[in-house]
Amino acid sequence: MNSASALSFGRTSRIAAKFVGTPSVGPLLVLLAFGVIFSLTNPRFLATQNLSIILQQTVIIGTLAIGQTLIILTAGIDLAVGAICVLGTILAGKLANSGYDPVAAMVLAVLACSAAGVAAGSLISGLRLPPFIVTLGILGIITAALRLISAGGAFSVTDEFLGWTGNTVRLNGFIVTYGVIIMLLLYGMVWFLLNQTQWGRHVYAVGNNPEAARLVGIPVGRLLLSVYVLAAFIYGIAAWLALGRIPNADPNALQTANLDSITAVVIGGTSLFGGRGGLIGTLIGALIVGVLRNGLTLAGIDPLWQDLITGILVIVAVALDQLTRGRR
């Protein structure tokens, strides 16, 4: 990273220095290590079909984790991730099933999700309430409301458009769903926003030192609001992807989405204290969780162990972040 020292060394070490200085290298090594272990223990693991399944299994959490990353970067946390996404699936499903145009139904559902983001963001930026409490409250409100709307039960959503994201395409013999492509496109777009625009710079600055951000004239409240709205919009898109994976709208679905999305973000190297980390790490973190679950399932290991190992990984990731923070 240091240009002076980089000049005195060769090109290879400059690349090496850049590599080590990139925060997502640690998670990437973990991902590769799991990949090697699972492919040695089970030859089926590396089959293209299995890799494609891992990607498909990662779609919902992977997409939700984009929004969660944005919010954690501002030193917040979102506990309403799953609830907002389920709000999207239920609304889109209900509207489409009762005869509305499916495209309009999906658009309305995404808007409703974004409105939940407006509510969360306004309370957090306007009244300066802690994100933890606000999103916990929204989680409760949405969950209760959804159970009332859907009378407690799940219902099937068979509309072709709402299920479209589950269709597959073949890319060089690799089969992916449109949902996977949409997720990767979202990663690309939000990565661009975070790394190449003023808005992204300000997200990091606000998460890192909100007082300094305010003093240099960054409209901190407006920025926080925009982050919560964009995140909720992405949860709305995730609802569409979820309907593509399972043609079913269930008010009790995605109950572990909060923890899973936070896990992906934290394992990916983004600091819970805000201002550090990024989306590439989150994508890798989501893949780590996907690979772990898939590999352990292939090995015939009880799913309880998957939760246990994921739990250990989260704690290790947070501990590493805490320790490196201590050095700064």
Binding site: Y204, A205, N208, E211, A212, A213, V216, I218, R328
Partner: peptide
């Protein structure tokens, strides 16, 4: 310039210099 170091420590020097006044 304020007493309590008004910088975003995780950002690099250039980003801090232009913080809030980034150029496109």
């Amino acid at each position: 310039v304020y007493q309590d170091l008004a910088v975003a420590a995780a950002l690099d020097i250039a980003s801090n210099l232009f913080l809030g006044r980034e150029r496109r």
